[in-house]
Design a protein around this nucleic acid. Sequence first.
DNA 1: CGCGCGTTTGAACGGGCTCAAACCTTGTGG
DNA 2: CCACAAGGTTTGAGCCCGTTCAAACGCGCG
Lengths: 252, 252
Amino acid sequence: MMNVQAMPTTARWQPTMGHHAMKLGVDERWSTLKELQDLLRYDGHLQAGSEAELFQRRRLKAGQSALVMGQPFDGLYVVRLGTLKTMITNVDGGIHVLGFPMKGNLLGFDGIYQNIYMSEVVALTDCDLIRIPSSELFASGRSGNHLEHMAYWASSREIIQEQEAYSLTRSVKSEARVARFLHTMSQRFEDMGWSPNRFILPMTRRDIGHHLSVTVETVSRAFSALVQQGIIDVEFREIRILARDALCHFER
Amino acid sequence: MMNVQAMPTTARWQPTMGHHAMKLGVDERWSTLKELQDLLRYDGHLQAGSEAELFQRRRLKAGQSALVMGQPFDGLYVVRLGTLKTMITNVDGGIHVLGFPMKGNLLGFDGIYQNIYMSEVVALTDCDLIRIPSSELFASGRSGNHLEHMAYWASSREIIQEQEAYSLTRSVKSEARVARFLHTMSQRFEDMGWSPNRFILPMTRRDIGHHLSVTVETVSRAFSALVQQGIIDVEFREIRILARDALCHFER
DNA sequence: CGCGCGTTTGAACGGGCTCAAACCTTGTGG
DNA sequence: CCACAAGGTTTGAGCCCGTTCAAACGCGCG
């Protein structure tokens, strides 16, 4: 399909959407509240019965839309597997990539205000989402309140991450932006239990550019410059980080 | 004090923090749930007793901090009067202004995640805030749920506005960024019932620059250029918009 | 008054954008 | 199986715009 041609599905040092995902597919279409809680890393206490309540999963192929701007709000989604990109289109047609949601990230919070999703979310790889339907979210009875609080607690985290990503755009030198972007990706992979020093970028250079407010060429040149300095090693989408500290110790 | 030297408090075409505010001061230190609802423009229905529940107000002088990054979360705040700026400081010391909260805006949502406020909020003018304490917000009993939902509904709106502000930074030409920033301010003043074509900017050129990711000089030059084109008229902080349509009809 | 700060304008430098071309991979169809 | 098309990536050359450094002015305040 699109955007995944350079990704070898046979790599062992990084989980992929290969046969394993297919094996899960048909049988396990539901997730428990407990799994949601683990995915979000929510440390608050939920009432008993966490195993009983079930949430529907939604599978996406690379390139498919998870959320479409303007569509009616039908709940929040938590990423179980895969990587996506969140976009907004400027009034003048300019594209901006707000972020790249991965395992444990929350989608759709901007739809609560007007009961309409306000951003575009597209799957970069095959994805597996868990849906928290509005009915469950807004239920004022027994369990609903805790679920709502957990969802909004997670939303607060997403905001902060977005703010940090925002400040990524501010570094004066484009090389520093790319370096810090890679550092962020490295951390996220590590948080998910994968290797922080060797990973495959799920997004194109163009997506990175739209995220950092620079052009494709500038991103590519920054990669080359970092290779030249011996800080990273690049082979298409595959990134090896040789000097992790150097990535965030950039001036301005 | 600071940042307000150029603001005539005698102007009639725009509400200020003059004698009127002082008159309110000592007596009315509390707001009803109904007032909160109106400020936020929440159209959902709250249960009866909206008049009974009272929320404490908090007055700030220009230059004072509303929220300090790292301080323990003690609730959300709604702006009743005045203008503030929300800042985050980059790892390298760079400042970024996320936005300029005004009447009806919500503050402090980023503090929910870790029970710590994650951004700096400073009053640009004298301000009046209404506090929604954690205890009320998280109360699972009767009314708490609705209040929590309203707060998060408002948060969703703040996110969207922040995203739009984000995309402001993306316009290639700095002149277009400034133009669209002025258009946004014009709309916000109009939404608050004031004149959209004549207003006083509560923030410095430097603040605007930190918001749009450009330098002070660039902001100033953009203002001059817009004046040259007959689109606006500028006298220090006072802005008159002569051709409102032209502000958002900028190429890229 | 003089100091601090905000604002404005000028001049020169430099980094990122634009345009362009080449190479690579992947997918499609003959 | 091969040729071709489409899109992603890389690199080069030249230009433009925003930054940087500098200076001047105005306003408010001590």
